[in-house]
Write a protein that binds this DNA or RNA. Structure first.
Lengths: 110, 110
DNA sequence: ACATCAAGCAACCGATGGTTGCGCTTCCCT
DNA sequence: AGGGAAGCGCAACCATCGGTTGCTTGATGT
C-alpha cells in the first residue's frame, strides 16, 4: 500500500537549503531574502528563488513592507508537510517491523 | 536548534521516483532494474541510475546473480532514514506547537 | 551454436540550484 | 531636498540531475 503524497510539497522540503530556510524562519519568526541569505552559505538570489518555490507550494507567505518583503511560515501548510513526512516514515517503519517479524518466524521454524 | 541530518540520505529519498522504488522493493522483497522499471512510468536506465544513488547512500544493496543484479533494501539504513524523517518532523511540530502556545498567550493577554 | 534477455555505456535534452552583473525603487541622512 | 545606500527583481550563464534513445557486451537457455 503506497502512501499517496503530494510530490510538490515533498520536493519543496526535499532540498536541504529550503529545509534550512524553513528552520530559520521558524526560529526567527520572519525574514527577508537578504537577512536569510546572511545566515546561509548561498547568495541572496538563490534564497529568493527558494522562497519563490516555498511560496508557490504555500509553505511560506510574503508580506511586502516598503522596500522589504518579509516572509513567514504558513503553519497550516507546514503541519500538512509534517503529516506527510510522518505518513511515509510510518509506512516504511511498519514494513520494516513486518519484515523483521517474518524473518524471526522463519528463523524459529528452522 | 536545527536538526543535524545527513543531506545525502535525505535527498536520496527526496526524489519521488526513488521513494516509489523503495516502496516497490519493500513490497516485493527484491528486484532488478528491469523488473522494477516495468512497474514504473520510467525507463530501465532511469531506474538503474536511481538504484545507483540509492546504493551509494547505502539504502539498497545489490547482489549480482548471473546476468541479473538483484537489489534489496538495507533495513538498517532505511531505519536510519526514517529516524531522520521523524526527527525533522518532530522538530517542526514542536516549533509549531510552541508558536501556537505563544499566540494563544498573547491573545489571552489582550 | 545462436537467439535472447539483462545490464552497461554514451550522448543528448530540459529543469533546477547556484552564481555574477545590472537596473530600479525605497529609504534615510546630512 | 538631494544623493548614496539598501533591498529587490531580472537576465545570462554554468553544472548537475532526472530522463530519454541507441548501441554494445555478457550470461542463459534451448
Amino acid at each position: 500500500m503506497t502512501v499517496t503524497i503530494n510530490d510538490d510539497l515533498w520536493s519543496a522540503i526535499g532540498d536541504p537549503t529550503r529545509r534550512r530556510l524553513v528552520d530559520l524562519l521558524l526560529a526567527t519568526g520572519a525574514g527577508t531574502a537578504t537577512s536569510l541569505s546572511e545566515q546561509l552559505p548561498v547568495t541572496r538570489q538563490a534564497v529568493a528563488k527558494h522562497l519563490g518555490v516555498l511560496d508557490r507550494v504555500g509553505l511560506v507567505h510574503a508580506t511586502p513592507s516598503g522596500r522589504e518583503k518579509r516572509y513567514q511560515v504558513d503553519e497550516a501548510q507546514l503541519a500538512r508537510a509534517v503529516a506527510q513526512l510522518n505518513a511515509v516514515g510510518d509506512a516504511w517503519d511498519a514494513r520494516l517491523r513486518r519484515i523483521k517479524r517474518i524473518a524471526e518466524a522463519i528463523q524459529k521454524s528452522t
